[in-house]
């Protein structure tokens, strides 16, 4: 079914002067999928993601997000996506509750929905005691879990996560992925970039980007078979070894 495809790109390209950050990438993402976007530093993952979120205008190529055109309907797209950037992006000088209210508010959630949502969110994250604490004082793992929950507060169709678990301890990372699975179960498509190869194995499908191009796209299992290796680590090395660009 056509409607099941929520992200569709066709030869999407971004150039910065002579430098081609992403080169003609083409892929589809199905609704409800956890789609992993892998690659070394500087492979073009963040650039690709920024184009899909409407933060950056592509140089050429086409893409539709939730059925909306990436050039003409950016405002429509923004209503239907959530985004969690590489940098931590909640307000550190606001409390947990204030952040939830603020982001819920600017997405236009009604007062009633907002209070229900923040109630259940705080419940799920087990942050009852921390609700009045400034976000800046929370440990990184907590912040990331909160940031993710806030980014899907308005029940978007797709959520984009740019290296959400960088610098987070393994236990918290596990909890973070539990949140992702819960969101995916509710039908939210998850588009996630990561460096951690164990996380890659949690994804339904993954793409490997090398030097701005997609070098592989399949389920983790099939990729491992294809490259006849036991782990995603090896697949990654196999593919990334060919990279000409230096990591930044």
């Amino acid at each position: 079914m056509e409607t099941d495809i929520v992200i569709k790109t066709e030869k999407l390209t971004k150039r910065f002067g002579d430098f081609i950050a992403t080169n003609q990438i083409t892929f589809d993402v199905q609704a409800g999928e956890i789609f992993g976007f892998l690659g070394a530093n500087g492979a073009g993952k963040t650039t690709a993601m920024k184009m899909l979120c409407g933060l950056s205008t592509p140089t050429s190529g086409n893409a539709t997000i939730a059925g909306f055109d990436i050039y003409r309907e950016t405002e429509q797209i923004k209503k239907n996506i959530g985004y969690m950037s590489q940098k931590f992006s909640l307000y550190e000088d606001l409390t947990v509750l204030e952040n939830i209210n603020f982001f819920g508010g600017i997405y236009g959630l009604s007062k009633k929905r907002l209070s229900e949502k923040s109630e259940s969110l705080i419940e799920t994250l087990n942050m009852k005691e921390l609700r009045k604490k400034l976000v800046g004082s929370l440990p990184l793992g907590w912040k990331q879990k909160l940031a993710f929950s806030v980014s899907i507060l308005h029940e978007p169709k797709i959520v984009f996560l740019d290296e959400p678990t960088g610098g987070v301890d393994p236990v918290t990372r596990r909890q973070f992925w539990d949140l992702l699975y819960a969101a995916a179960d509710r039908g939210i498509t998850i588009f996630v970039t990561t460096h951690y190869m164990d996380e890659a194995e949690y994804c339904n499908r993954i793409t490997m980007m090398v030097d701005g191009e997609i070098k592989a796209l399949d389920t983790p299992k099939k990729l491992m078979q294809q490259y006849s290796s036991d782990s995603m680590d090896e697949v990654f090395y196999e593919l990334a070894r060919g990279a000409k660009r230096k990591a930044d």
């Binding site: 409407g54 940098k87 992006s89 307000y91 600017i106």
Partner: peptide
């Protein structure tokens, strides 16, 4: 600098 503006920019504001 902090990066929060990016978060604002992906909202329909």
């Amino acid at each position: 600098e902090v990066g929060t503006i990016e978060q604002i920019n992906v909202t329909p504001i």
